[in-house]
Design a protein around this nucleic acid. Sequence first.
DNA 1: TCCTGATTATTGCATATGCAACGATACAGG
DNA 2: CCTGTATCGTTGCATATGCAATAATCAGGA
Lengths: 145, 145
Amino acid sequence: MRDLPEFDLSRFLPYRMTVAAERLSAGMARRYRAEFGISVAEWRVLVHLADGGEVSIRDLEARVNLEKSKASRAAARLAADGYVTKVPNAQDRRLVSLSLSDKGRALMADLIPRALAFQERLDRLLAAERAALDAALDAILTEDL
Amino acid sequence: MRDLPEFDLSRFLPYRMTVAAERLSAGMARRYRAEFGISVAEWRVLVHLADGGEVSIRDLEARVNLEKSKASRAAARLAADGYVTKVPNAQDRRLVSLSLSDKGRALMADLIPRALAFQERLDRLLAAERAALDAALDAILTEDL
DNA sequence: TCCTGATTATTGCATATGCAACGATACAGG
DNA sequence: CCTGTATCGTTGCATATGCAATAATCAGGA
């Protein structure tokens, strides 16, 4: 029986990156979920809405990498929970117009500082490698693989 | 209405890393799935089995970051497809003993070179940042966040 | 030997996910 | 004005996922 080529999964970038991303998201996701019942998809929607302006599902799909049914469901949950108002867009009634409610604004006033604190913690941990890490991620995100 | 703190999701590491990981896995996953019907979880199981030896579900959980029910189901599918043999461990019958069948070995003889080629492509793309990227990933994977 | 507590893999179940199909709306060309 | 085409959001559906509960097995001590 012929031997297989050597292959070390623990050095394989797609694997390493996936596990690292899970680690990074896990902590925040767990806390957000436990304290506020907010999922990662909902978090992305909220962040984009906090930027202001009228936002549609397709905007979310394009800007925060949420497949449209995922974005639609996240928005529906947030609207049901009162964090988000969802009305048809006046100019084009195919579109929905999402925006933060006062309750959603208050939620983000809690959440954003926590995210910034976590970001700073990562900055300290990765200080030396930060520039190269950003460059590598930019390359991966830009390049068409 | 008080203004919210500035927050740029596209610079937030958990988000960036998640999207980058999805990009990296997507290409390979799509091809493996289309050509061989192999999922990411099954791929991880196969790689670990290709290392040789008798492997249990708990080994997979510990070594390739697969939650145990995910590992169990992946192993069951691979066994059903004839890529893997699954028998109770003789010394401890609580454990299963997984190993590659000849068919599974042939599959990996196809898959591993493709993975190595992809790895090399990434190495070329990220040549300049590679060392720092590895260091950053090691830090994230090691540190308890 | 016979309990008791641990460990392991599987399965039930509720929820999440992604894709395709659909209905509603907009728009351009005739 | 009409008609065909494109875009947008939602939903149906099949599958995937994660957690908790379970059954089987083991190890150690009374």
